[in-house]
Design a binder for these strands. Structure first.
Length: 602
DNA sequence: CTAGGGTTAG
């Protein structure tokens, strides 16, 4: 006991004199550190002996991972009550562990309590606070902490700036972050790899992969090393853009530079390859990964499950699930949601419900995504009322329906012809404070058009155009189609022609819809001109485009033009769809066509 | 002591 007290006293005294010694330079810094850590370790050893069970020092030393809220609160109380009080290094280590579990508000609560207990912050705990405020999207509070840093006489360091820059990038304010980089330099702090990585990540999130590439080159020019993080971020963006070859070549560049890929790099590449239909390459990459002893994790499996499920390969997905269990990888909520969605998409609702039971048994609480998938499953088999029953149960479970949940149900009602209920649900969504987005409006407008309520759709569309909402090409295509089907081909054409000045580029679907409208109106020559124009604009016609035009020409009795289009379509690798074939057969039976025409179709 | 990448639903 005596020994312990004397060491503790020494440590206290030592902490008091340390800044002085540092300032006067009477002792070398590294020596101080050595002694300091020696004393700290003595303190730790004694604490654990006296305490009996594992105390907070022990836990901090062994590293805290995945700490739950209640556990964190208990640990914090223990720290606050312990005498002598733990140092700020201990608090910082503890807070950062909690921050890693994304419980930012909890950390901020603890910081507040530190202040109430008369413990002053240092630059480290202040940096942690800045990070937490940023990650809670309260950047303005983060700035006020920065003010506090300076008021307390601390120099904001590279970490302080990096934390703020990262916060801005995560909020999508990349240009503001770039401005802060300049201010950082003015303050004598050099941007480092971490700075650039945040910026590269922000740029990639904004979808500008080529700009991220430029940033990578800029880093090299400024002799700031890029690391696996930098490369993986860009590789992932390239994969998302569908630029798989570019992703692979960047992957090779990284390896050539001696930067070893991580499981994250492989996860992105495997996903990208599989989504692009290059299954063999994906499998080869997985093999490569395992042979390099990079261990697949739950995300690797989730990615694979997703691509299998999207291909309808549920059998394989189930085998993958078993493989995960065998390897000791715990499935998470995303694993179950992915599988559940697979069953729903195949209309296998009882198995989807079994999946719900399985996840609960395995201690994974279903979330809003789970129930939204299930609702979609019911809607797909035209059981929208059962979908509504699930929907009404969501809030009883403490979950909140979001825009996706409402959108699926609105669509479900529209497709069941219950347009009135769709509109009511849409109103309910708004009154519950869930903001409809472009997708929700697109679904509603599509439903209104399909159910003979073009005027209502156009009314909402007018309002939307006046709003700040960025209407994508899908929305315009929906309205153009609605107008065409509602006999307002002239209006549709005007809207179509106005797209460029609205800054929207028509896609294959838009052209096809417009071509169909022109055909309906009997303007076949204009439709033909539009077919050539879409090619000039870089939109290759698809099977739907060709079939639409072919049927129109057949209806018109222009067999030569039909035959020419059929040949062209076949040369593009497309074939006649069911509706075109039916039309040809009908015409064959009525004697309008001879059999050679049918032969040409196949 | 501080920062950061990859997975699910419309």
């Amino acid at each position: 006991m005596m020994i312990q007290r004397s060491i503790t006293t020494n440590l206290k005294a030592f902490r008091m004199v340390q800044p002085h010694l540092l300032k006067t330079g009477t002792l070398r810094t590294d020596l101080l550190c050595t002694i300091s850590s020696f004393l700290s370790s003595c303190e730790r050893d004694f604490s654990s002996i006296t305490n009996g069970n594992v105390c907070f020092r022990e836990r901090l030393r062994s590293g805290i991972v995945d700490i739950k809220k209640d556990d964190a609160i208990a640990l914090f109380q223990e720290m606050i009550r312990s005498r002598p009080l733990p140092g700020l290094v201990d608090f910082s280590r503890f807070f950062s562990a909690i921050a890693r579990t994304k419980q930012f508000n909890l950390v901020l609560d603890f910081c507040k309590q530190l202040e109430l207990n008369g413990i002053a912050h240092n630059i480290y705990t202040l940096n942690i606070m800045i990070n937490c405020f940023c990650r809670c999207c309260k950047t303005c509070f983060a700035y006020s902490v920065l003010g506090k840093v300076m008021k307390l006489g601390y120099e904001p360091d590279t970490t302080t700036f990096n934390t703020l820059i990262n916060g801005l990038c995560l909020e999508g304010k990349v240009s503001k972050a770039v401005v802060l980089v300049d201010r950082m330099v003015e303050n004598g702090c050099q941007p480092d790899m971490v700075t650039y990585n945040s910026i590269v990540n922000g740029i990639c999130r904004s979808g500008d992969t080529s700009l991220a590439f430029d940033m990578l080159r800029k880093m090299e020019e400024r002799n700031v090393k890029a690391d696996v993080f930098t490369y993986s971020t860009i590789i992932d963006s390239l994969c998302r853009d569908g630029c798989i070859d570019a992703a692979i070549s960047l992957f090779k560049e990284m390896e050539t530079k001696g930067i070893k890929s991580s499981v994250v790099t492989y996860n992105s590449l495997v996903r990208g390859l599989c989504k692009a239909g290059k299954w063999n390459d994906g499998a080869l990459l997985l093999k490569d990964m395992v042979s390099r002893e990079i261990v697949p994790n739950v995300i690797t499996f989730n990615v694979l499950l997703d691509v299998f499920v999207k291909e309808g390969k549920l059998q394989e997905a189930n085998e993958l699930y078993k493989e995960m269990i065998t390897r000791g990888i715990s499935p998470n909520i995303i694993t179950y949601n992915t599988l559940m969605d697979g069953y729903c998409m195949q209309n296998r609702l009882s198995e989807a419900n079994n999946m719900l039971d399985l996840m609960v048994r395995n201690k994974c609480s279903p979330d809003i995504v789970t129930f939204t998938s299930l609702i979609k499953g019911y809607c797909m088999v035209k059981r929208v009322d059962d979908g509504m029953k699930v929907f009404r149960n969501i809030s009883k479970r403490g979950l909140v329906a979001n825009a996706v949940t409402y959108s699926i149900l609105v669509q479900g009602f529209c497709q069941s012809g219950k347009i009135k209920l769709a509109e009511e649900l849409f109103q309910e969504m708004v009154s519950h404070g869930v903001l409809p987005d472009v997708m929700t409006y697109g679904i509603l407008l599509d439903g209104l058009c399909d159910n003979g309520k073009l005027e209502k759709a156009l009314e909402i569309f007018e309002d939307l155009q006046k709003s700040k909402m960025d209407l994508g090409i899908v929305m315009y295509t929906t309205i153009i189609e609605g107008m065409c089907k509602g006999g307002k081909v002239e209006d549709a054409w005007n809207l179509f022609c106005s797209l460029p000045c609205k800054g929207v580029k028509p896609n294959v679907m838009t052209y096809t819809v417009m071509i169909s409208g022109l055909c309906k109106k009997g303007s076949l020559s204009e439709a033909n001109i539009l077919l050539r124009k879409m090619e000039e604009d870089g939109n290759a016609p698809n099977d739907c485009t060709y079939n639409t035009l072919i049927r129109a020409h057949l209806r018109d009795g222009d067999l030569t033009a039909s035959a020419k289009l059929i040949e062209e379509m076949k040369s593009c690798g497309f074939s006649a769809d069911a509706s075109s074939i039916k039309m040809v057969i009908d015409m064959l039976l009525s004697g309008e066509l001879d059999k050679s025409f049918l032969d040409m179709l196949s």
